[in-house]
């Protein structure tokens, strides 16, 4: 049974999420992958304004396909989040609460998730067509020159994700593997 939650994420909602929970997300999320993360972090370091307020927001690590005529967005599954590890702790320090992606995160990211009470969700890698159906509105709000890597503001309805790293640092990738490992 999936938990239905709304964005922006509050501490009350995050406190209830446990690694392994299936969640349906509703509301606004922002996209961002390698190049956009690099630019966001450069802006923070220079003390400049970000193109969006990231307080309590969620960033989805994705570079979608172009939309066909009549489509809100093209296929839009997650990319490997580990490439964002170098930037994620600073964004969490500045208010980011949620990340959606796939794959392993490093210790600095897990430490930041615990320190700033955040959550890391995984969407199903390779399920770009299914995930795009849960995206109801899409608009480029920053870095249009980056193409698929630009920042999009998305409105999602019942967007299916799984909690991988919860606020206590529990990691589904470790827990799940240990449970099903045959020695």
């Amino acid at each position: 049974m999936s938990k239905i939650i709304n964005t922006p994420l509050t501490d009350e909602v995050i406190n209830e999420l446990k690694a392994g929970d299936r969640v349906l997300l509703n509301g606004i999320i922002y996209t961002g992958r390698d190049a956009a993360h690099k630019r966001l972090v450069e802006l923070i370091r220079k003390g400049e304004r970000l193109p969006m307020d990231i307080e309590n927001q969620t960033i989805y690590h994705v570079g979608p396909c172009p939309a066909k005529p009549g489509q809100v967005i093209g296929s839009a599954g997650p990319t490997t989040s580990g490439r964002m590890d170098a930037y994620a702790p600073l964004l969490m320090k500045h208010g980011l609460k949620g990340m959606i992606g796939k794959g392993l995160r490093n210790k600095e990211v897990v430490d930041a998730i615990r320190k700033y009470n955040c959550v890391y969700f995984a969407a199903i890698g390779g399920a770009g067509a299914l995930l795009a159906e849960a995206i109801k509105e899409s608009e480029v709000i920053a870095f249009p020159d980056l193409g698929a890597e630009a920042i999009y503001k998305l409105r999602v309805e019942n967007f299916p994700v799984t909690v991988v790293i919860d606020r206590e640092g529990n990691d589904l990738y470790r827990i799940g593997k240990e449970k099903y490992k045959i020695v």
């Binding site: 392994g20 066909k68 489509q71 599954g77 199903i124 390779g126 067509a129």
Partner: peptide, 29 residues
């Protein structure tokens, strides 16, 4: 055997069906 894994495999199968039916890429990459 894992209930969560079964749900994921079902979603993966559903995804390729959506891609085929609506003529969109299976994966954005």
């Amino acid at each position: 055997e894992s209930p969560l894994a079964k749900e994921i495999l079902q979603d993966i199968l559903k995804n390729q069906e959506i891609a085929r039916r609506t003529q969109v890429p299976i994966c954005q990459d």
